[in-house]
Amino acid sequence: MDSRLLTAIGAAVGIPLVIGGYIYLTERLLSLLSVRRQTQIRPYVWVMPAIAFAAVFMVLPTINTIVLSFMDKTSTRFVGLDNYIYFFTNSETLGALKNNVFWLVFFTGFVVIGGLLIAVIFDRIKYESLAKTAVFLPLPISAVAASIIWKFMYDFQPPGTVQTGTLNAIIGTVGFSPVAWLINSTTNNPALIFVGIWTATGFAMVIISASLKAISSELLEAARLDGANELQVLRMVVTPLLMPTITVVATTMVIIALKVFDIVYVLTAGAYSTDVIARQLFARLANTDYGRGGAVGVVLLIAVIPLLLLNIRRFRQQEEIR
């Protein structure tokens, strides 16, 4: 406990000291320069800590990982494309890649469509904020805790014994035999993806709901007066107007789907053909197989490049409006 106490005191005193000291010292140093020089250099003083962190922890390691992916296990010998050939011929990594595609399609699809429908439905009731809180509640819960929550939902006991898992108990009352949700190869990936959907739908709902409130009710009324039914209003008026928001939510979800790690790691550890890319990378890292691990990372990076460009393009468009 002693070293921990020391850390706590060190952090409480040291961190403000370092940050305050940085601002104070750089200002003192700047004051020695001419005013013109000061205005030239000062901006870098302000943004440099952030840029340095980004460089040391994101930019340089990313470049390094790309280099490592062309080297052998211990990064001593250049092996060309061997690690990539391994990635695209090995059933384990290919299986993980396939599962990520599942995650990408179903997780993103259900979260976005579910979030939209829930936002629209909840918009029509008086106890909207209460209902929203319920759907939103899993959001602050960690993937680790959520996994334990769902371990109970999916719990499986041999047929004929008491089913303590919520889902098996429910299907048992209507006469079905229990399912080993997390082991059965047709149910386990959907089961894991549903845990993700359960944690993320609240996020989509809140964002979409905020945009929904911004749509003028006169517009919707006009559509109804023109004879549109509720489904048509939703499909032809509301959804197009929400498209920018839906795109934002969808890109966020695609990134989460590509990076998914915690839920799979805690619930199945990738067993029973539920593995994903991020867990594969972690496994290589734990094995200190940096070459193959690097190749897994690069595949992941290539997958996000379209999103990266999309993000930058959208940012540029926003800047033009500003």
């Binding site: 030239q40 994101m58 990378l281 890292l285 990372g297 993000n311």
Partner: peptide
Amino acid sequence: WMRFPGRDIFFIVIVGLMVVPIQMTLIPVL
């Protein structure tokens, strides 16, 4: 609120980095 050469480039790199998976960096940082 500050003007300096390279500001837009730096910021676009930051916008791009928001998407880069941290998995990409784990091995070198470790």
